[in-house]
Structures are given as C-alpha cells and as structure tokens.
Design a protein around this nucleic acid. Structure first.
Lengths: 339, 339
DNA sequence: GAATCCTATGAATACGTATTCATTGCGTCA
DNA sequence: TGACGCAATGAATACGTATTCATAGGATTC
C-alpha cells in the first residue's frame, strides 16, 4: 500500500481572505475590498494585498461570494443531451456569456421525462439566469421556473410568451420563404417532414409552410420522422418516395441530411427528381458536398439577445419576446437544371 | 384543496432551512439532516419536514452547501468554443456526469491566449473536478492546475502524463491502422494533412501514419491546414492536388470533410483518383453521402473513463492515464472500384 | 481655528447550510 | 434494577466572503 500521498501544496487548504489579511497586515475586510471593490482601497494597500495574495496563491471563493452577495455569475442552461442544433446554440451562447463575465452551468437531459428532475436540481443552484432549450420543455414547466426572481429565457419557443422571456427565429415566415422559393422553382406537389409533431416549433414551421403552399394551391401532407435526427430522416425515405412529390420540406437540417441520403440511396436524384429544403442553417448545410437549401437561423444574433436578457436582471420581471428573421440560403438541393 | 401549493410570489426571498424548521416545529439541524442525511431522521419527522418544505417551496442552497461541506458537485470543463469534435466530447461527458449526479460548469475560450485568464476564473470555483480539453492547453498550464486537490483530467493529451490524469485514444496506433489499410488498397504515394502542427495530438497522429507508411516504403509529406476546421481543409485542396498522391490522410474528420469537398470542386474524384481518410469518427462520417474512412474514437467510452476519474476524489493524488483503442471504419472514400 | 467632509480602514455581522457536541428518552443486557 | 448503548433531536459553531457601521486622520471650507 502506498502511504502518504504527498502532493506539494496538495493537502494544504486553499488560502482565504483572512490568511491574506494576516500576511499583508490588514483586515479581512480590506482584502475583500481589494478584490471586489478596488476603488475603495488606497493604491499602496492594494499593492501590498495583491502581493500577499500572490505569495499565498489566494483566489476568492466564488461560492462564498455568491452566498454572501446573493447573486452568482452563473447562468444555468437546460439543454437536450443530443442534437446538432442545440450543440451549436450552446456553443454560441457560451461565447456570448463568457464575453459578459458569466459562466454556464450545464444541465442536460436525454429524455423529456427527466426534465422535472433536472429542474429540481437547477433550483438548488441560485443561478443568476436560466436558459431553457424549451422546444422540449412544457409550458407549465417553464412557468414554474419563473418563480425565480432571475431572468429566464426560452430559446426557440415563442409560445412561452408572457411566462418567461424568449428568443426565437420567425419559424412561420421562414417556412413561407422556403415554400415560396419552391413554388418559384415550379413545385406543384410537396410533402413536409417534421421531427416530433407535438413540439411547438415543429408545428409553427409546418403551419408556415402549409399556408404559403396553400396560397399557391399546393397541398402539403405532414410526415412525422419521430425524432430530430439524421437516422429518423433517413428512415422517412420510403414514405416520401411513395407520395412521389416534387419537393420535400424538412423541418430541420439534421433530419434533412438523413432524408437526402435516404432518398438518394433509393435512386432518387436531388434536385432533378425531387427538391429538398431544410431549416436551421447548420454549418454542414453550407458544405459543398451537401449544399442544402435552408433557412439560416442567425444563431450568433439569437445568442447575443439571449445573453443580454440573461444578464439584465430587470428582464426577470418584464418578460420580453425577441423574434428574429432568418434568411434564405439557396443551395443545389432546389436548383432544377431543367423546367 | 390544493391551496398549499401557492408560493408567495416573485420578490419574496427563497425559503431557507430555518424557515422550514419553524414551519415544521423542529430545529434547523433536523431540516438539514432531512435533506442531506435522511437516515438520521425518524420517519414521522421526515414526513413533517418534507411537507413543510413543499408548502414553502424550499430548495436547499447549493452554494451554501458547498461552502460548508467544502465540496461541490460541480465539475469544471475548459473547452475550445469552436469545433465539432469538442462539442461531441462535451455532450458525451455531460451525459456521463449527469448520471453520476454532477453538473458541468463550462468555461470556453476562443483563442489559446485566453486560457490563462480562463484558468484564473476556474480557480475561483472550487470545482470537485476539472476537465481540460488539453490539445489546446499547454503542459505548464496543466500542471498549474494540479495544485487543486481535486481530480484533473486532460482529454486527449497523453503527453500530460504525470501531471494530471488523462484519457485519450491511441492516436499513433490508430493512424497505423489507417495507413496500413491504405497500403492494402494499393496506395504508393500519400500526403498527411494536419490541423495545427504544434498540437501534440496532431504530432502523434502524423508520427503513427508516417511510421506505418515508412515501413512499407511510402513517404508521407506533411501539410498544415492551419486550423481544425472544414474551411481549413477545403483550402488545402490545391496544395494536395499539386502533389498528386494516391491518398491523403487527414488528421481529423472535420478537416477531412473540407478536404474532400475541396478536392471534388477541383474535379478530383474520390476514391477513384484519390483516397481520403479522416480521424475521430464524427457522426457525419457515417452519413451515407459522406461515408468517410476514418478511425472512430469510442467517445462514450472515453467520456465514461473521464467521468469516473473526475468523480473519484482519490484520483487527484494518483494521476492515471487511460489510453483506449479506436476502431477502423471503412467507407467509400478508400474503396477503389478498379486498381 | 473650528466645523465639515471625505477617504481609508477595522470590527462585527450575516449569508444558508453541515456538523460536532450535548441531551433526552428508551430498550437491552448483566 | 442499574449501567449502558443507541436513536433522535437541538444548540451552537464554522465555512469564506461582502457589507454595514464606526472611527481616525487629513483636507477643505467659512
């Protein structure tokens, strides 16, 4: 058996502000001020304290600070564990928050059924803001979190209106743009492939697409892939092929990638036999080998709005809804060579 | 009559264990025990406390708990803000940690130069474990964090040996597998495309590839893409084409996707004119439209090992290095129809 | 030259919980 | 029956910091 595992500096407890105070010959209060309100400390003292702190390797304890000051610099995020889209959102939001001096405490869930348990854990952390990837979170769950006096932002769920703040892209008009583009290309029959029909985002996208198509006399049957994943999209190919439409509008890029490959595996050529559109504007949509026509969400802009709401404590009592327009990206998947 | 579910609204400060104690007619200590050591409380009392807590909407304060108990359930993660690969790792690690009752506090950085600042912030949070996406973190920065008595794990940087624990795939043997496969396919000349040559992972992969190729008398010049991104890969096409090799081994999938599209845009057919391999085994590599030959990292397994090390407090004083083998995925990008 | 104000600091307290120590009541064993 | 052990609880304290209140000079004003 190996005995005392001697780590230099390992067993020693981290230095506290009191330790630094003694080392620098000042009071603990002065040390605290040096780090959290330097302007209240004279130049000379600040210097001495800083040196003492450096000598002892002192670093303020964020937990104690949060406890006392009743506010943390931590923003919570409840996000699905899977999904290309959410990974990108998370990445963008993290960047924006970091730029505002906030850290992100991540709570992920695999199954929507876990959300309640996760939210209970979230409550234990007195986060200064909460981001909810709400396509997967029920409205009543959203409203339960509003109790917190900290800003709460639902990402991509405009239906959350009134309960919490929200930031989202205009799903309906985005889909109208896509549908309109397809009609321009000569599309006369089409199909919509959604991910999960119970999700409000999915519904809004279908609604927009169906209305625009309807305005041009084109019917738009709905097919449910069952998940927002490549595989789910791939598995839809047969059902789509059976309907033999001019075009297929897919509710999200990730599913669309699967749909495309599924269709091509059945010998259907895109766009010659069938046009395909997506939604989200994932990075992969722009890859030359894919070049998907899609509605690009301005993720960075959305993330910036979200971060601003999360940082602004006043927004807690005044829920704000931000809706941003996406823009059309036209790729090879809808470019008919003939007509 | 469910009147009790009413919680005094927004502005009211959250209930504390003392509030619950009064409500339930017990001491604060008993309330604390009810939540953190229920077995020390009698059945009846536990019941009464739970009801009082529910009535007041009480939730334990994680910060206060961490402060007093000197340990948090929070694991820190320092990860680059961009990159498909890291997003996947993060996603996997988050899942594994959630299963172990840990939350993830995310610190992201855009530029390696920010790492020092980020690490300073990390130190403020007394995280119970720290995950370092260390391909971008210097060894001296790693060792500086070892001071913490909490487990520190470098993900994908075996060179961290001795300083902190590490979890990584066997880069060198993985690349040997890929190279060997290419030679079997009849490859006689080849090129290696790395991301950033100063990164140890990049070096290890090139080393493995070059050695295996060398064993078969094939030279392997190195080309640096300049970043681990699609665009960087796309931009390499010209330099690759100029060398006109049989095969190009790319150091990471994300770059490989770019290389493929870049080459095809120049009229080079894959795999007929040129074979391509990647490394990482990103989900996109398995997409039918891409079907890249690559070395698949067992991300879930790596994440599990990382999570276990991060949770095991003993691992702090006993750095452990875990190296796992990846497996070869053979896709269309190396399948020669003729020869 | 005193009244006043401002700056820099220290002493003391509170944040919400976990934990030690002490106390009580009760069942058990000799 | 008395000594003892155990289970359940309460009182008190400590975790590390921010902040209020008080104090001592020193500069400023009339």
């Amino acid at each position: 058996m190996a005995g005392g595992t001697e780590v230099p500096g390992g067993g020693a407890r981290p230095a506290t502000s009191t330790d630094v105070a003694i080392e620098a010959g000042v009071s603990q209060a002065t040390v605290a001020r040096t780090f959290s309100a330097p302007h209240l400390v004279s130049e000379g003292t600040r210097q001495r304290v800083s040196e003492a702190a450096a000598r002892l390797g002192y670093v303020p304890n964020a937990f104690a600070r949060s406890l006392k000051s009743q506010q943390s610099n931590v923003v919570g995020a409840v996000v699905p564990a899977y999904g290309e889209y959410w990974q990108n959102v998370l990445s963008a939001v993290t960047r924006e928050l970091a730029a505002r001096g906030r850290q992100l405490l991540l709570f992920s869930f695999t199954d929507p059924g876990e959300v309640d348990d996760v939210l209970d854990i979230v409550r234990q952390y007195r986060v200064s803001g909460l981001l909810l990837a709400s396509a997967s979170i029920r409205p009543d769950q959203l409203s339960a979190m509003r109790r917190q006096s900290s800003p709460t932002v639902a990402f991509n769920q405009p239906a959350a209106s009134g309960l919490v703040s929200s930031v989202s892209v205009d799903n309906e008009s985005g889909c109208r743009l896509l549908a309109s583009h397809l009609v321009d290309q000569g599309c006369r029959t089409a199909v919509f492939v959604g991910g999960v029909s119970s999700i409000s985002t999915d519904q809004a996208r279908y609604r927009g697409a169906a209305r625009e198509m309807g305005d041009h006399g084109v019917a738009l049957p709905y097919i449910e892939a069952g998940a927002f994943s490549y595989d789910a999209g791939y598995g839809c190919a047969e059902r789509i092929a059976r309907l033999a439409p001019d075009a297929v509008m897919v509710g999200s890029d990730e599913v669309a990638f699967g749909v495309i490959d599924g269709l091509e595996s059945r010998g259907i050529r895109i766009p010659d036999d069938l046009a395909v559109t997506g939604f989200d504007g994932l990075p992969q949509a722009a890859w030359a080998g894919i070049d998907l026509t899609t509605l690009v969400q301005p993720t960075d802009l959305l993330a910036r709005h979200a971060a601003e709401l999360l940082v602004d404590t006043a927004s807690a009592s005044r829920p704000t809804d931000v809706v941003v327009d996406g823009h059309l990206r036209i790729g090879r998947t809808t470019k008919r060579s003939d007509r």
